[in-house]
Design a protein around this nucleic acid. Structure first.
Lengths: 230, 230
DNA sequence: ACAGTTTTTTAATAATTTATTCATATATTT
DNA sequence: AAATATATGAATAAATTATTAAAAAACTGT
């Protein structure tokens, strides 16, 4: 999952910094604009993945900004609205915002909204089928299926994620720690030998499946999904 | 993947040891400073890749240290803050910290943060293909492959790293000690003759591969990957 | 919340691979 | 030629991985 960039637009720099803080704590990159004009400019130069947009702004107000950006792009926009504003006024006006939060807001909630909006709009991550195929092997991470020669093989999720990760970058050697970070996640804490065991089980399942590829050990370094030259 | 060095700054040596334990279990090198002054000194002498910095410190407090270091470098800094501190106070003051954790913290989480910060700050050299080519020889350190005339030759990692290192700077002479430092790593303790043996095995594998280059001994000095003029 | 089931992790040890040392032959420098 | 340095081959040591079984953790359906 690539890091997402959030464009924060608000004339109150305390709010900007607060949002930035929470968002960056959550792994987002952030850029900040303090007025409507620079918001549009930064949208063009920074190419953010999502925009948090205040309505009350100098130079161009949030609505104008929203409209201007909508002409250029379908980037998700979350409006930051004053308490009094009504829904219809915000979303119903066909401005094309994707969500809104009312001030004063809870920063955590804003982050949650950002994630939610990204989840449902980013067509790339969750809506694209995560499938890798090599010869008689199909690894389908959308359905969590491992298919060998057309036959589904019952495979625990970690194993599947592991082989998917390896096969997604064929020939690249991954160290155990790299695999733990990238497949298990940063939070994982425990020995790295568990990778070996998962590899072993995968090999059991995939033995003699194909002579086009193999799960190869690179001693002292790690493992790779190797595609044999012909 | 080069080993990263973490500078831990805290006056409570229990905390330092705890962090050290977890970080080293995860493959990081660590150095420890117990007050602000030595923190700045150690930053200069040890050149860490990332700093864990407590705020309450003798001599110089964490903010002063942070500011001092920021004048010298963009090294990532994670602040260790007491529970009460407010966010804005920490990041809003433009101290330039990259992240923070509040005490009491979960050591695992700190390690996770360190990794996360390193990942987003370090100029992702992970995705760069490490490949060197000369004539019929391809040394691929991403896949850990040595390819001669299109055929992969099974090669142990040290040998591969050695030839990669030499071939990355053709014609440059490396002393054995230099090679031990740069390929084996500073931790290595042992005789330097082992370099000879590795060179020998590489020559076996690469004999007559090409008349464009050769692994040359420079008597009393070291070795070089020499490219012949035409 | 519980008992049964599956998955994941740990731990121990056997097997393998890689790295280092050592002894000696060969080569280079002075 | 003497002294110093390197090449080579074999033996040893060290480190890493495979495999197995068992324990722990995470799930499942009730």
């Amino acid at each position: 999952m690539p890091i997402k960039k959030v464009l924060i637009v608000d004339d109150d720099s305390n709010i900007c910094e607060l949002l930035r803080l929470y968002l960056e704590k959550d792994g987002f990159k952030t850029v900040i604009a303090n007025d409507g004009e620079s918001a549009v400019n930064m949208f063009n130069t920074e190419e953010p993945d999502i925009i948090l947009l205040d309505i009350m702004l100098p130079k161009l107000d949030g609505w104008q900004v929203c409209r201007a950006i909508r002409k250029l792009s379908d980037v998700p926009i979350i409006m930051l609205t004053a308490k009094g504003e009504t829904f219809d006024k915000i979303l119903g006006l066909d401005l094309g915002a994707d969500d809104y939060v009312t001030k004063p807001f809870d920063s955590k909630e804003v982050v949650a909204r950002v994630k939610a909006v990204l989840r449902r709009t980013s067509g790339n991550d969750e809506n694209v089928e995560k499938i890798v195929k090599y010869d008689k092997l199909v690894i389908n991470l959308t359905n969590y299926e491992l298919i060998v020669d057309g036959v589904a093989i019952d495979t625990p999720p970690k194993e599947l994620e592991l082989i998917y990760h390896l096969a997604s970058n064929p020939n690249k050697v991954y160290s155990r720690n790299q695999l733990l970070d990238e497949v298990w996640g940063f939070e994982y804490y425990g020995g790295s030998r568990t990778v070996d065991v998962h590899i072993k089980r995968l090999r059991e399942k995939l033995e003699n499946v194909s002579d086009q590829w193999t799960i190869k050990t690179v001693c002292r370094v790690g493992y790779k999904f190797e595609i044999k030259q012909s």
